[in-house]
Design a protein around this nucleic acid. Structure first.
Length: 846
RNA sequence: GCGGAAGUGGUGAAAUGGCAAACACACCAGCCUUAGGAGCUGGCGCCCAAAAGGCUUGCGGGUUCAAGUCCCGCCUUCCGCACCA
């Protein structure tokens, strides 16, 4: 027989193995009830991981937060949906295939199996029956289905666009795979810009709604909302046409087709237009092509500008290049003043923002000022500051607090008045209009890669672009494919895939060989969870209606723009397709901080990676999880210190010992509460009920789980200090019962294995997850005597004890009779007494 | 440059405008022991030999009876955006 000391040892490995098996045997434990349930629903979701094969500490933290919340909501009687899935498409699988000669599918599914084991070992309460794996046809067929719906509505379209191209990989790279202008796999290889025909989703059609919707997302961090606002980049202004001046003198003829043309510019400051002393075109502007076609010298200079811009763009540092420009020798006419201004081409004008052309107003724009100074272009002030303080008249003057001067009939108007008036005139004269533009661009979804959703389109020689009919979905991604480093879409080299027949004419045709961006997969996966097995539709709208919007979404802030804006877009498209009723996918969003070590993000190159498996093996899953909640509030970065994990593990050991030690008392004790507890029983019950109140409150709002763990530690410390009295029976058995049961219940969201074990130890045979969350008794949660700080002139002097509800007068008296206070105010005049009930007494003396 | 967040002991951190440093880690002293990465007791912001006392939340001002907390200015760090017309 093992001796007593052995028995009194907390053995997380044994406990966790036991419960892992029990939970695996009960698939209903973490399953949501059907949408017909009359319990209130709660959908808690953590962002799904990419199946790299290994969970990292950031995952442990993310899922520990979500799991704690889910468990607490289960205990509070909610119908909880807490699903998990895999963001399983993407380039790493192809890279792994190259490196290890393993097919991407095999590699990915193997990784999923490994990570699922890790999740189970960590005790995460996911409903695996609703698991979603985005690389499987039963999921990605619905990507294709949505694509076709968008195509029908004109929300999916093709156009030529610039892409990042790695000459070494001979493939397109996503923006996030371009690091400092180089390929992420070939860090000395500069990424090139190439023009390719690409598929786009018309997210810009929803720009205004995506922007306005942010105001209503008050359960989102302000930071994320701000980032999205900036990303969408709404800008109000005016489009105005400058007329291209007729050129008659050149070889006696007119430039055919040019003289009637206009140069449309976008400006937010049309009020400054009388100060426009040049028009600037982006080097790629179509008009520039027309100019250079007949001017070899100009062409050479423009090509140079293009090259500069390209280099800068490839270096990802467009803001840093010096402003260069070249005069075209042409002139444009200001539509308001009739003034003739030179047309320049400049490297700082972006073709893909606004109209690719600007009016340059050096006196009232920093960039134009810099450019004009450099090239000696006239700088003409047309806005006068309202109040000419010292130096406020210095140029460039960019404020809108001003009045128009040198602006003909508009002189004397304020900037805002002038903008309105000038817009009216432009509209009437049909040379311009009020205009709102967005920085947001349409979402390029084509990828020249293998491991992604095939785009369900067919190219027919006769019928052109033809959509794959719904009844031919899914377009299956072929598995027999050799992954090579050759350029172009890998699917293009699979004849069985490419060659098909046209759905319209039945003639020979070719399939589209591009695949979809993996952000498509993650844009709607959380809808699929609610009805994951549906073979007829992406989901049943009635079920989605029950579960949506998601009550709480939890993930890293690195997805603030991409995933979180794409999924908002997708929801709005689905709403307009009549599939969902909610405008937004997620009511509340929580972005947790990073896990760092030694002051830096964990990374292989820094050698500071901590493996979850390792932590679990040494200290158990409960300790690893609880430490990740205890070490910092969840929204802040967390500094991983292994000694801290050991500390939590020791704490759980103390819990284990004290509960197992007194479990026999608790098991046989009456479930009746003690009517009038006194002495130590009362003290302990007070601490207990204060702790319940604190933890419960935190779950409801603040989420400072670190302080909740600390509060539970305090409770255990106090119980441990009472060890002798517990042992002697001085604390009544029903009180012991309540203390131990409640302690275990409070621990259940944070340390689920230990809580399950101790719950059983206390004689319970049902799942602790189904036990009701404890309620704090307000009469027990408050003290009847409290300590009040006493200040003299705001400085702390001492502390006095008063009854909890003491009124200011009583508090004042208690303070004044205190010896220390009397000494300090002797010989002085008491000017004023501030006594705030329950808070403090401050004596103002002279 | 613009926007956001944060600066508190040796470390992670705590503190509805009301006792700064709870809870832990590390460290120090001691106890226990079947030597376990175990358990228990005590100490642990700074100044002062100790006590008494004084000082202390990045820096400087302010509001207030009272400021880590609110306001203004500055410094530092991190994050995002950045020639967006």
């Amino acid at each position: 027989m093992a001796d007593e000391k052995e028995q009194l040892r907390y053995d997380p490995a044994a406990i966790e193995q036991k419960w892992q098996q029990r939970w695996a045997a009960d698939p209903t434990l973490y399953a949501a009830e059907p949408a017909t349930s009359n319990k209130p629903k709660y959908y808690v979701l953590e962002m799904l991981p990419y199946p790299s094969g290994q969970l990292h500490m950031g995952h442990v933290r993310n899922y520990a937060i979500g799991d704690a919340l889910a468990r607490q909501m289960w205990m509070r009687g909610y119908n909880v949906l807490h699903p998990m899935g895999w963001d399983a498409f993407g380039l790493p699988a192809e890279n792994a295939a190259l490196k290890n000669n393993t097919p991407p599918r095999e590699w990915t599914l193997g990784n999923i199996a490994a990570m699922k084991r890790q999740f189970k070992r960590l005790g995460m309460g996911f409903d695996w029956a609703t698991e979603v794996t985005t690389c499987l046809p039963d999921y990605y067929r619905w990507n294709q289905w949505f694509f076709l719906r968008m195509y029908e509505k004109g929300l999916a379209y093709r156009k030529k666009s610039k892409v990042n191209w790695c000459p070494e990989c001979a493939t397109v790279l996503a923006n996030e795979q371009v690091i400092d202008g180089c390929c992420w796999r070939h860090e000395d290889t500069k990424v090139e810009q190439r023009d390719l025909v690409q598929w786009f989703f018309r997210i810009t059609a929803y720009a205004q709604e995506l922007l306005e919707g942010l105001d209503k997302l008050d359960g989102w961090p302000e930071k994320v909302r701000t980032m999205q606002r900036n990303w969408i980049g709404r800008s109000e202004g005016t489009e105005v046409d400058f007329f291209l001046e007729e050129i008659k003198q050149r070889s006696g003829t007119r430039d055919q087709g040019l003289e009637k043309q206009r140069i449309r510019v976008f400006t937010t400051r049309v009020d400054t237009i009388f100060g426009a002393t040049s028009v600037q075109l982006a080097p790629e502007h179509p008009l520039v092509k027309a100019f250079t076609a007949e001017d070899a010298d100009l062409k050479e200079k423009v090509d140079e500008l293009l090259a500069q811009q390209k280099t800068a763009r490839e270096a990802g540092d467009l803001g840093a290049i010096d402003k260069h420009g070249v005069a075209t020798g042409r002139f444009a006419v200001n539509p308001y003043s009739g003034e003739r201004v030179p047309i320049w081409v400049a490297n700082y004008i972006l073709m893909d923002y606004g109209t690719g052309a600007i009016m340059s107003v050096p006196a009232h724009d920093e960039r134009d000022f810099e450019f004009a100074t450099k090239y000696g272009i006239e700088i003409r002030q047309v806005i006068k500051p309202l109040e000419e303080a010292d130096g406020s008249n210095a140029l460039p003057f960019v404020s809108e607090d001003g009045m128009l001067v040198n602006s003909g009939e508009y002189n004397g108007l304020s900037c805002v008045q002038a903008q309105k008036k000038l817009q009216e005139v432009a509209t009437r004269g049909q040379f311009g209009e009020e205009k709102v533009i967005f920085r947001l661009k349409d979402w390029g979804v084509s990828r020249q890669r293998y491991w992604g959703t095939p785009i369900p389109m067919i190219h027919c020689e006769r019928d052109g672009l033809v959509a794959v009919p719904d009844d031919q979905l899914p377009v299956i991604l072929p598995e027999k494919i050799e992954i090579t480093q050759q350029g172009g879409s890998p699917l293009g080299r699979v004849p069985d895939f490419v060659n098909t027949t046209c759905p319209k004419c039945g003639g020979p045709a070719r399939r589209e060989t591009d695949t979809m961006d993996t952000f498509v997969d993650s844009s709607w996966y959380f809808y699929r969870y609610t009805d994951a097995k549906n073979a007829k539709a992406p989901f049943d709208p009635a079920i989605v209606k029950y579960w949506f919007p998601i009550d709480q979404y939890i993930g890293g802030v690195e997805h603030a723009i991409l995933h979180l804006i794409y999924s908002r877009f997708w929801t709005k498209v689905m709403r307009d397709l009549g599939l969902v009723e909610n405008d937004e996918p997620t009511k509340r969003l929580f972005t947790q901080g990073m896990v760092i070590k030694d002051g830096a993000k964990m990374s292989k190159s820094k050698g500071n990676v901590v493996s979850p498996d390792d932590m679990v093996a040494r200290y158990g899953a409960d300790s690893a999880r609880m430490y990740s909640l205890f070490a910092a509030p969840p929204d802040r970065d967390l500094d991983w210190q292994e000694d801290g994990v050991a500390g939590v593990s020791r704490f759980l050991g103390r819990v284990w010992r004290i509960v197992t030690k007194y479990a026999p008392v608790a098991r046989t004790a009456s479930a009746q509460t003690v009517d009038a507890p006194a002495g130590l029983s009362l003290t302990l019950l007070r601490k207990l009920h204060k702790t319940i109140a604190k933890v419960t409150q935190d779950f409801e709002g603040r989420w400072h789980f670190n302080t909740d763990v600390a509060a539970i530690m305090e409770l255990v410390n106090e119980m441990q200090d009472a060890d002798a009295q517990l042992a002697s029976g001085e604390v009544a058995a029903p009180v012991v019962r309540e203390l131990l049961r409640t302690l275990v219940l409070l621990l259940a969201p944070f340390a689920p294995f230990l809580a399950a074990e101790l719950w059983e130890e206390l004689g319970e045979d049902g799942a602790i997850l189904r036990a009701p969350w404890p309620k704090s008794d307000p009469s027990l949660a408050k003290e009847d005597e409290i300590e009040i700080p006493v200040q003299i002139n705001g400085k702390l002097v001492t502390v006095v004890r008063v009854a909890a509800g003491a009124d200011p007068g009583t508090m004042e008296t208690a303070a004044l009779v205190n010896d220390k206070v009397r000494d300090r105010i002797a010989g002085k005049t008491l000017v004023k007494v501030i006594a705030v009930p329950g808070r403090a007494v401050n004596l103002v003396v002279k």
